[in-house]
Design a protein around this nucleic acid. Structure first.
Lengths: 343, 343
DNA sequence: TTGTAAGCGTTATCAA
DNA sequence: TTGATAACGCTTACAA
């Protein structure tokens, strides 16, 4: 069923049918009813591509999972509980507002053109970016082009005026500060921090929170106690193993992600260290792996963030004047049996 | 950049540009290079809506999460580890083949027209249905209309000739049989089965597997030991609690899903029953909750199923002649410390 | 090998 | 309040 056939059957022109399907006010009830009865009888649905081509907005949000990979054949989201959570939550909240979600994985810089393409084609009316490094210039460009975007864990760059972007972050400095302080309050002094990929926005904040807690407690900051994990389990595992082999002493670890915390736990176990008897540990994100392995973690409230990303983006898309802004979702410390107290 | 502008800049006609972007063979290398250099210089990307409108296929798969809800405001996928897993896995495998995934939640029968719409509009070139009841007539209609679909856990109806559908199932009867047999081999005779929604295809098979193991062991089947759970945690919780209050004796539970097993565990704990000392338990799906709560489960290999769903569907979409068929993914019993042995 | 022009199914402009 | 018609950006006969 095409609009022409409906028009013919209803005895009106295509423009009238179009006015009806678009809920325009300038069509009298009588005409509307006549058209609607034909539409309902034949189950007519307007073709979305044709609509898009004339400039109408499509009720579809783009969800871009960004993780640049050295080896492109790696599965990136399959093993990441964090990404799975976010995808499911975004789909859920978008659906509640009657929006579909078009999900695209972006594993290298060039693939960002897929996002540009979807915006330019109007396949999507707004986009959510998850996992993107802070330095991705392309995303600045999307903002300049007037595309509506929402970013999870990206920091607003004070230099570039991002007017169309929504920023959703956790309070990374505070979360890291509290985790470190908790360890200190339990008597720990030699605390390792496993940091993530420096190009991602939360990384530096979490380091700063860690440092702040140390300095408040007058514990000297030691460079050797900061090790790299790149937000990946394997890398954290290797580097913690190295640390132990180098016989660097530490009594606790604060890892900037649960994945890295889990890598550390594997290394500790392999080296015969017990948790929390020999080493105490706190992770970040509070994904299900923290519950599973029963270690403490800073809860990042993924569902709440997805809720804000989706609903603020839809607000922005629907009220074209709305000024986009920043949101901070509070993080909370979930304590489990992974911390030893020294008196 | 539109095709016209590219054509003008390259000094050719729009049809030639179109031939180049569609990789047609009847354009000499020289012309192709000339056109490509302009395309690359200006970063031209063909408009997908315009392409779809002329009848071209869109490299997008529809993923439909189907769960009919009494209360439409319930979140359905947010709390379901099973659905989150499947979504992430489908997105992952589709992306590997350079397909996007358009995810739609379907919470009532009427909403199935969204799927029809996407097919009719050619927004998607194929659809994956997860969670659909076996009796959904609309899906039969999609098949008749020639839409390419892949179904997770739906049974091929011998009466209706589904020629365009791909069926992916686990071996439900065998999985249930082995779980029940394992309990019997450990000396259990009074085994409760918590069954799922009868309209979903795996439910009856799992009941049959349970019955088969009982009859093989010459244990009489007792109707009172089969209780309803509707694949929902809460319902299983309530019905197990009732069973205990009615003082029905049982020493083990085989639940048709991990969610229901977890509901049962909560009820047991509340009633002061220890696992496995008082009651042994096996679930189904082997989601992360089974690992977390350390109970045994029949592993349904969600990743493997997603892999088959996506790749067989793409095969079917790309080679138009290919006959769709059925796939069985083997299930395996994961034993954890949730089973007591009687001698 | 290449170009012209019709057509895909809508919406928007303009005139009536 | 309604209807003709151009336009959206592409593909594809058909013609050259």
């Amino acid at each position: 069923m095409k609009i022409r056939e409906i028009a013919k059957l209803a005895g009106v022109s295509v423009s009238t049918v179009s006015r009806v399907t678009n809920n325009y006010t300038n069509v009298p009830k009588e005409t509307r009813d006549k058209v609607m009865s034909v539409i309902n009888k034949y189950g007519y649905i307007a073709n979305s591509s044709a609509r898009i081509l004339t400039g109408k907005q499509n009720k579809t949000l783009g969800l871009f999972i960004v993780e640049f990979l050295d080896n492109p054949s790696n599965n990136i989201i399959l093993p990441s509980i964090w990404f799975s959570n976010i995808i499911a939550a975004v789909v859920n909240y978008a659906s509640a507002k009657n929006y579909n979600t078009l999900v695209t994985l972006i594993t290298n810089k060039k693939a960002l053109k897929k996002a540009k393409e979807q915006f330019a084609n109007k396949s999507i009316c707004g986009g959510i970016f998850v996992g993107a490094e802070n330095t991705v210039e392309e995303i600045n460009e999307f903002d300049r082009l007037g595309y509506k975007i929402a970013l999870l864990e990206q920091k607003k760059d004070e230099n570039s005026s991002r007017n169309n972007s929504i920023f959703v972050n956790t309070d990374n400095t505070k979360g890291a500060y509290e985790a470190t302080k908790y360890l200190i309050d339990n008597g720990h002094k030699k605390i390792v921090h496993i940091m993530g990929n420096k190009k991602k926005s939360p990384t530096l904040d979490r380091i700063n929170g860690y440092k702040k807690a140390l300095s408040e407690a007058k514990i000297p900051f030691e460079k050797t106690l900061i090790i790299k994990g790149e937000y990946q389990q394997n890398i954290a595992y290797e580097n913690v193993k190295n640390l132990i082999e180098e016989e660097v002493f530490f009594s606790a670890i604060f890892a900037a992600s649960d994945d890295m915390a889990f890598g550390a736990i594997k290394a500790l176990r392999e080296k015969g260290k017990r948790i929390p008897d020999d080493v105490s540990i706190i992770g970040y994100d509070d994904t299900i792996i923290a519950k599973l392995e029963n270690f403490s973690s800073v809860k990042a409230h993924a569902d709440d963030m997805a809720d804000i990303l989706v609903n603020q983006l839809i607000n922005c898309v629907e009220n074209k004047n709305k000024i986009a802004s920043s949101y901070i979702v509070e993080s909370t410390l979930e304590i489990r049996n992974s911390i030893k107290k020294y008196d």
